[in-house]
Amino acid sequence: MRASTTPSEYFTPFLSPLTMALLEVDSLVKHFPGSRGRTVKAVDGVTFSLERGQVLGLVGESGCGKSTLSRLIMQLLPPTSGRVLLEGECLSSLPPAVVRRRRLDFQMVFQDPYASLNPRLTVFSTLSEAIAARHPGMVGNRTACTEAVAALMKRVGLDARAMRKYPHEFSGGQRQRIAIARSLAPEPRLIIADEPVSALDVSIQSQILNLLQGLVRDLGLTMIFVSHDLSVVKYIADEISVMYQGKLVETGPAEEVFHHPRESYTRRLLDAVPRIRFGGDRFPPG
């Protein structure tokens, strides 16, 4: 970004002229050595592809491998076998320094906004650092930085006047907004959100879900939304993949999976969603 760009120009959709799938995951496998010589097959042959602008909901209980899969896609873990392709380029074979630069295109939002933000950096420092990663020219240009940070904060529904504050001065929901802003700052094409609302109050979850949905719509983002809660994923995802013991056991359009699950495991996940015992038709279906 040049210093002359206005904040509104800064957040134009990150479009690409290519027509191939944005992300391709090809028979990805990750085995960990377990106790007593056993092997833990955390991810055991996962294949899927993700089109531009699509939101994939990845659902499963803890231990099913969904976080390992996210980390493999993020290139935070080397796979045992298989490939991850972003815009046709195989990330798994790139040298680490190149991956680091390439990672500007795929960013992650973590579960716990109390742990994922540096407590000693102000919101301004956190965000301007992430913006400068994409725009090295902005380093030292304080006015441009301030403008970009303000635009970013506004985009995620935060008051830009709070940019000199530290993470502890914000509530859980606001911190998650900061974490989302941080992941948006390098203008990524793909966002992996790993349980982004699980640590939040039910009433705050809706706010963050609305925000993410708006960002996907307005910025043309592609997203993998990881969660253990099918009822939350239902809203945001176009497609849902259900993961069980390292494998994708069911994939389909969100409404379809939610209302007509084919697999018994998916039905079990749905049954676990807490229901209100009364109130007739306002029960979640399933």
Binding site: S203, N210, R275
Partner: peptide, 24 residues
């Protein structure tokens, strides 16, 4: 009433989710 409405599982897909306006 607002708390009840804001349970994500009880809301329809496609529409923005109901949220309680303002701050605690």
């Amino acid at each position: 009433r607002a708390l009840q409405r804001s349970i994500p599982a009880l809301q329809e897909k496609g529409k923005p989710l109901y949220t309680i306006p303002g701050m605690p």
